[in-house]
Amino acid sequence: MKTASLEEIYCSASKNTVAMWAKNAGMGKLREACRYPADKLALATGIQPPMTQPVLHLTAELHRLTQDDPLADVQPASGLHVTFLPLTQPLYHSEDELPANVDQLVHIWRAFQAKTLVIRHLRLVALPSQLLLAGIPEPSAIAMRHAFCEKVLASPWREALLERHSNSPLPAPFWHSTLLRYGADFLPAYLRQFFFDRQDVDFGDVAGDLTFAKVNYNWTTCYPFTTW
C-alpha cells in the first residue's frame, strides 16, 4: 500500500464521518453497556512509544475538555500505543493461564520482536463515536505486518485471528491509537468541533520497539510475553 493511498483512506474515513454527523445533529442512542471491558485482556502486538510533546499537549487538551463528561473515555497517557496486529478477542483475565499452544505464537513472534516501528505524520481521524490518532508507517512495516499475519494464519491461531477481525479487514489498514471513545452513537457537538479545529494539524512522529503482550482495550494494562 502506498503512502498516498493510506492518506486517502484516513481522509475518506473522516469525510464519511463528517457527512454522518451532518445527518445526525445529536448523539443518538447511549450505549447501555461498556463495549470495552477494562478487566478482560487480549493478545496483541504493537508499540508503546514515548509521549512526544505535540501528542502530550493534544491528549491533555482532550482530557481537560471532557473532564465533566462521563460518556467520554479518553486514552490515558500511560496507555499510548499503536497496534501492529491484534491477535485475539479479550478472552483472558490477568491471572488466567494462557493456552499451551501460545508457545507457537511466541515462536512466530521471535522473528519480529524488538523491531522498531516508526509512525510519521500523525493526524486526527474521525469515526462516528471515536477520535483516532493515525499515522503513516514505513513501507517495510507494512510488509512486515503482512508477513506476520500470514504466519499466524498458517498456525493453529488462525481461527482466533479471524474472529478478532470478523468485522474488519485483515490486517486492518489503519495504524493508530484511539484517543477517544464515546458512549453514544455519535460524538457531541463540542467534540466534533475539537476535531474540526485540529483536523489539518500534523502531530509529528512516534517510534517504539514492537512487543507482544496481553493487554486491555487501551493498553493501560500490559503484560509482555516475557513476564508470562
Rank of each mutant, 00 (worst) to 15 (best):
W175H: 10
H81S: 11
W175C: 09
A154G: 13
S140K: 06
W157Y: 06
R120L: 09
W109R: 09
I108Q: 10
D103K: 15
Q193N: 14
S78C: 09
Q113I: 15
H81F: 08
F195V: 05
E97V: 15
L133K: 00
L80E: 05
E138Y: 02
G183H: 11
D197F: 00
L91A: 12
L124M: 12
A189D: 14
E138H: 05
A189K: 14
A77G: 02
D185E: 15
F195G: 03
T116L: 14
L179I: 14
L98A: 11
L124C: 10
L117C: 14
Q199E: 11
C149P: 00
S140T: 02
H121G: 15
I142K: 04
W157C: 04
L85N: 01
D200V: 07
I108H: 10
N167L: 10
E163H: 03
S78E: 11
L131W: 01
F112P: 06
P99H: 14
L122D: 01
V201T: 14
N167V: 08
N101R: 11
G79W: 07
F186D: 01
V152A: 05
D197H: 09
S177M: 09
F148D: 01
K151N: 03
D202C: 10
V118H: 13
P156R: 06
V82F: 12
L85A: 03
R120G: 08
V118W: 06
Y190E: 14
L87G: 07
Q113E: 15
R198S: 12
D197P: 03
Y182S: 05
W157N: 00
P173F: 03
S155C: 07
L162A: 01
F195Y: 15
P171M: 10
S129E: 08
A134E: 04
V82D: 01
F174Q: 00
T88I: 08
L127H: 07
L85P: 00
N167S: 13
L161K: 01
K151V: 02
L117W: 10
Q199P: 02
L131T: 00
P137S: 08
Y190G: 06
A141I: 05
A154F: 05
A184V: 11
F196Y: 11
V82M: 08
Q193C: 11
S129T: 07
P86C: 03
D96G: 09
H93C: 11
R192V: 02
S129W: 07
L153A: 05
F148T: 03
T88F: 01
F194C: 05
L131D: 01
L187P: 00
P137C: 02
A160T: 00
W175K: 10
L127G: 08
L191T: 06
Q130L: 13
A143K: 13
